[in-house]
């Protein structure tokens, strides 16, 4: 890691918070945090105007480490708190970070409705395909047939494709990246944060401790290699058959559309009401 990158990170980390962090060595959450900091630095956003809100889970611990306005909410509800913050103070840039269980199981309803409303928020979903914090129970993104602490005989449920779900629900900007493609992730996060409207960046990430261990991918490196092999760029995927895409997933930008966001629309309502 170059010296420059390190110093950028240190500019944004909290110094009054006693490290070490709570994550397992090699956990993908750290890579996402680094990427997020680089994206914010690139956009030149001030710490005071930034809010980072999370739900509950390993991913949910991220805000405590960064020197922004930070909020650690309840399991699955980060987007509801973020909605209140953004509407009350539209000048703030509000980013949420959630786990796959957090965002699409207990928080699934909030997720699709935030996308539908097109509120100007950025939702980073760290998809490690498992409930990390509570000990490896299967989540709505655990692949069919894989193993979890509550799927000792193999998972018989089918996984949500989170990014595609966000596109259907109406998000303005949707992208998928992985912790292996870190440089690409910096760019996707920066675009998502800069976008007016609801942005979703799904990040395929390694939980070798709870997912990998039960699915023949015991360590971070094996999981990284897995992401490298299974990720297909959106452009390349367009030329591939469904069969070829079978156990692969797309990375890149899945949607980038311009449509009125909630706050712009609400401002018009205010003006109408005030003229009345």
């Amino acid at each position: 890691m170059s010296e420059k990158t390190n110093s950028v990170r240190h500019d944004y980390l909290r110094h009054d918070k006693k490290f070490p962090h709570v994550w397992c060595p090699g956990c993908g959450n750290g890579i996402v945090l680094g990427s997020l900091i680089r994206a914010i630095d690139k956009l030149g956003l001030g710490k005071d105007e930034l809010v980072l809100a999370s739900g509950i889970g390993c991913s949910g611990r991220m805000p405590v480490y960064v020197d922004f306005n930070t909020l650690h909410t309840t399991h699955g509800r980060a987007l509801t708190f973020a909605t209140g913050i953004k509407l009350a103070k539209p000048a703030l840039t509000v980013i949420t970070v959630m786990g796959d269980g957090d965002a699409t199981a207990i928080g699934g309803n909030h997720f699709i409705h935030a996308a539908r409303r097109n509120i100007d928020l950025t939702a980073i979903i760290i998809n490690n395909q498992i409930y990390g914090m509570t000990g490896g129970q299967y989540s709505p993104t655990t692949p069919y047939g894989s193993f979890a602490s509550t799927a000792a005989w193999g998972n018989i449920e089918h996984a949500f494709p989170i990014a595609e779900l966000a596109v259907t629900a109406g998000a303005s900007f949707v992208a998928r990246g992985t912790v292996y493609h870190a440089a690409m992730l910096d760019g996707l996060l920066a675009r998502g944060i800069a976008k007016k409207g609801f942005s979703v960046i799904e990040v395929m990430s390694n939980c070798h401790t709870q997912y990998g261990r039960r699915n023949q991918m015991n360590d971070p490196v094996t999981m990284m290699r897995h992401f490298k092999e299974k990720a297909v760029s959106v452009d390349r995927a367009a030329k591939m058959s469904a069969e070829e895409m079978n156990d692969r997933f797309t990375i890149g930008v899945l949607a980038d559309v311009d449509k009125p966001n909630y706050m712009e629309e609400y401002q018009k309502i205010r003006e109408r009401a005030q003229q009345h």
Partner: peptide, 18 residues
């Protein structure tokens, strides 16, 4: 909001924003 859980979350967020 989409339910009362969300309503309660949103008012906490708004209050945190002042």
């Amino acid at each position: 909001m989409e339910d009362e859980i969300a309503g309660m979350g949103a008012i906490i967020g708004a209050s945190l924003a002042g």
